[in-house]
Nucleic acid binder design. Sequence first.
DNA 1: ACCTGAACACCGTTCAAGT
DNA 2: ACCTGAACACCGTTCAAGT
Lengths: 228, 228
Amino acid sequence: MRTKTAVKTELSRDAVVDRALAIADVEGLDAVTIRRLAQEFGVTPMALYWHVSNKDELLAAMGDRLFADLDADAVASTGPWPQQLRRLVAAVVGALRAHPAAAVLGSQRILYSDSGRDLAERALELLVRAGFDVGMACDIARHSMQTAVMLVTQQPGELTTAAELREGLMAEKRAAIASLPVDRFPLLAASAVAFTSCEDDDGYYRFGIDLFVAGVEGMLPRRASKTR
Amino acid sequence: MRTKTAVKTELSRDAVVDRALAIADVEGLDAVTIRRLAQEFGVTPMALYWHVSNKDELLAAMGDRLFADLDADAVASTGPWPQQLRRLVAAVVGALRAHPAAAVLGSQRILYSDSGRDLAERALELLVRAGFDVGMACDIARHSMQTAVMLVTQQPGELTTAAELREGLMAEKRAAIASLPVDRFPLLAASAVAFTSCEDDDGYYRFGIDLFVAGVEGMLPRRASKTR
DNA sequence: ACCTGAACACCGTTCAAGT
DNA sequence: ACCTGAACACCGTTCAAGT
């Protein structure tokens, strides 16, 4: 066995991005390296520069790929608008969760992919239809993207770091929590473990999206304060 | 002139963290380097390892420093609870905005600083008093921290990158927007500039915090669905 | 069109040694 | 207690050259 895959995939832009995401999934984003990728392809580091102009462009391409796996049209646009909004955000979250360590890269790349643009347009459309003016709809649509990225990247429990390191970090956290003076931080001491870890991933995301959509619903009645 | 400061500050843990934050402010987090710091102090790179055990610990210390500039007790706890919550989140946002490029480092460090703990405890307290059970209060308190970090780190307009690069990135964005087919993305094409830039920073933060607090208010009535 | 070799200017970090 | 020298194993990237 020379590499993990029996068939040696030939070098190409897509193949490089795929491999980069695979490395990020297992060992975190810092492990994604031009030289490392070259080694995995059995090639000289400079060979990569033919398919990718530099590392920043590679990272951008990784971000774009996250949205490519997302089909905005697959999200049904039926039912009340809060439910539609919820489904849109959930779709983004789902796409980012496929590569949590690379999710950070998605935040600045939404408007550069076709499906991301579809998604943004759909969000704006349903928000305007719901009664928001275009400026506010834009703010909310942006926020919905930011929220999706936040939920995945900030998910409690050290997702972005390598599996081997996770144990040590969690131990350090528990030690810090154990040192909390209960008389000074009664509520925090009681819930500190829940604060920094996450036993139910799906519940975490459900709650996060609920909270966001509830906020948007709460903003609607006040629309009169902006334009007459 | 050897360095910018006339008085050569002597090496110490705090001085190193200060300088690291100053570098991050001007040139971004990537410019913060053990060797660069050593050079600015007129010292050998290994000298730093006496005051800081490694780079990760330095980054953590930078994150802690963000919360040190925050006094939780200074936030008045009067008025209705949504207003109190709003002030707490605004305080965190304010602290992070002092060093936007380093704000990412704060997300995992809240429970390691005294003022961060105070803040979390205060948030839990007011949420429980508002009628949430402890589990939900914990989820919301965590979310409020995540939101504060998100607002600062994801602020539209390329804050984390160096000033010289900003121009080029903005130009690239405008080009991408100009290429948007108006017939396919009518709403997006109309608001794409507002989507990726930010002409009114304070308005952006006000809206973001409003949206979050509105969401929390929206979650309250449903508390009956959890425990009886 | 696609890849290599050699080189450059960087990183973080260890370890033994100095004062 | 605090810092240095030398060394190691890494980075991204350029540029001329090969096929």
